[in-house]
């Protein structure tokens, strides 16, 4: 444990985290303390379908803060089958062979790419020198039971746009208690009337009628009429009726 981490831990104790020792579990400004308190784990989005890294502020900001946490912190829960990554800061965890591994190899998709296939509390270990464990963190996976399309921090069924206007929307998965879930699911977006309404990914200006694996999407009102935007992931789905006016 380096001086910086010792300092953080003592500050944590001083702030009243004593009952939670030894891990002094909680979130730092840019991550989540490991269970042993030796360092911090940072949540990393590896796909733009992850609501944790949504960039257009369409999701209710209260729910984002409550369920997904601050930047870098591990969300309260991620969706079963979603993908995510982690990195770690702390101690002597800096040489080339250091890595983060899942306690259960089945929770690993590839090098530091993770996915939990059923509801579970899964541990992820910061390993150094092949067999030493610097610290570990627990990620909770819950089943996503609903998708919602968010517009201006609400989930309307119907919106109106003017010809030439654009609108930022975001899809997010939620559990049975209507808590937002982290992790990227494979999403398929479709505008059911491409003549009236087109879609673009935030990083692209090419307007299309279908997109895949995006969480944030920009709607483009092309001409007068109506369309429905549909997004699906497995059995889950959501739709938004869009009326385009002059």
């Amino acid at each position: 444990m380096n001086v910086d981490m010792r300092l953080k831990r003592w500050v944590c104790i001083a702030l009243g985290c004593l009952p939670l020792l030894p891990g002094c579990k909680g979130t730092t400004g840019s991550g989540t303390y490991g269970e042993l308190g030796a360092g911090t784990f940072n949540y990393v989005c590896i796909n733009p379908g992850d609501a944790v890294c949504s960039g257009n502020n369409a999701i209710d900001s209260f729910l984002v803060r409550r369920d997904l946490g601050r930047s870098g912190a591990i969300p309260d829960a991620i969706a079963v089958g979603s993908v995510f990554s982690l990195d770690y800061e702390g101690g002597s965890f800096e040489n080339d062979i250091d890595r983060i591994v899942a306690a259960h190899r089945g929770d690993e998709l590839g090098a530091e790419e993770f996915s939990i296939e059923q509801p579970a509390e899964a541990s992820f270990l910061a390993v150094k020198n092949f067999d030493e464990v610097e610290d570990f963190v627990v990620v909770v996976a819950k089943e996503a039971v609903v998708l919602k399309i968010w517009v201006d921090e609400a989930t309307p069924e119907h919106v109106q746009m003017q010809v030439g206007e654009t609108l930022d929307v975001t899809v997010a998965s939620m559990d049975e208690d209507e808590h937002l879930l982290g992790g990227a699911l494979p999403y398929a977006w479709q505008s059911m009337n491409a003549r009236v309404l087109g879609l673009t990914a935030p990083s692209n200006t090419h307007v299309v009628d279908a997109l895949r694996n995006e969480g944030d999407v920009v709607l483009h009102a092309k001409e007068l009429g109506a369309s429905v935007v549909r997004v699906s992931s497995g059995d889950l789905g959501a739709e938004l009726f869009v009326e385009v006016k002059p």
Partner: peptide, 10 residues
């Protein structure tokens, strides 16, 4: 346990 979403209800 999630039920299949029925599109067409917007």
């Amino acid at each position: 346990t999630a039920e299949e979403f029925a599109f067409g209800g917007a």
